[in-house]
């Protein structure tokens, strides 16, 4: 057997790479969701000074390449603060921040989609701002946001492939390693692309399911 041929161990490598990609995707989505939602709530409470600052930061993160953000965190931060940043840490920081920016925008749109009159009548009933957020705004905003959110997550999964550039051994990096060893680019990249495709489809499917559940109470049930 020549060292250029595929071995069964390559399958384990691919599975490992997929695991790293999916794990980082899940962790950064969770952190990004938390930060993005907190930013949107701050905007809902109209915190002075912070609100324009957050909006500016979100616009900056949305309108610049993730690759450059990744380089800024991985190469720039250690040089500026004289600290050590591992590739995985840089990936988590960058992807979480990027996801947070997009989730902030979606959350703001979702909150604004709820009619003013609903919030006003809730206030007339004597609900506090937190109660309004918790019982009136949040459930409806969630049902509104789930569609764009699914689209975002499918996108963010693809964005994780960029972390291979700073040396995180994710699925794309494994593809690179296999490509250099076997010199069969068509097979390697087709398999890697196929795995990403399947993962993206699963996310889209999950999002569609969740959307049906969340919208069940407003769906037309027939007479």
């Amino acid at each position: 057997m020549r060292y250029t041929s595929f071995t069964s161990y390559d399958l384990i490598l691919l599975a490992q790479g997929l695991g790293v990609s999916v794990a980082l995707f899940l962790v950064t989505t969770l952190i990004g969701f938390l930060i993005g939602t907190i930013w949107a709530v701050m905007r809902f409470y109209r915190v002075p000074l912070l609100t324009p600052l957050i909006t500016f930061l979100a616009e900056l993160l949305k309108n610049s390449p993730v690759l450059v953000q990744l380089f800024l965190v991985f190469f720039g931060l250690p040089a500026l603060l004289k600290i050590n940043v591992t590739p995985v840490e840089a990936a988590v920081i960058t992807l979480s921040g990027n996801t947070a920016a997009f989730i902030y925008v979606i959350a703001v749109a979702a909150i604004e989609s709820i009619g003013r009159d609903q919030i006003e009548s809730a206030r007339v009933f004597g609900l506090s701002r937190w109660q309004i957020l918790r019982h009136v705004v949040a459930p409806q905003a969630m049902a509104f946001a789930i569609g764009p959110l699914t689209g975002l997550l499918v996108n963010q999964l693809q964005v994780t492939s960029l972390i291979s550039v700073i040396g995180v051994v994710d699925l794309t990096k494994i593809g690179n390693i296999l490509n250099l060893r076997t010199l069969k680019p068509f097979i390697v990249w087709t398999v890697v692309g196929g795995l990403y495709y399947i993962a993206a489809k699963l996310i889209a499917l999950g999002g569609a399911r969740l959307e049906r559940r969340l919208r069940a109470h407003t769906a037309w049930k027939g007479l």
Binding site: L162, T172, N179, W189, K201
Partner: peptide
């Protein structure tokens, strides 16, 4: 739309 651009790029560049 569902495959990362970097994978597509490598597919063409090496393929």
């Amino acid at each position: 739309r569902n495959i990362p651009f970097i994978v597509q790029l490598f597919f063409f560049f090496y393929g």
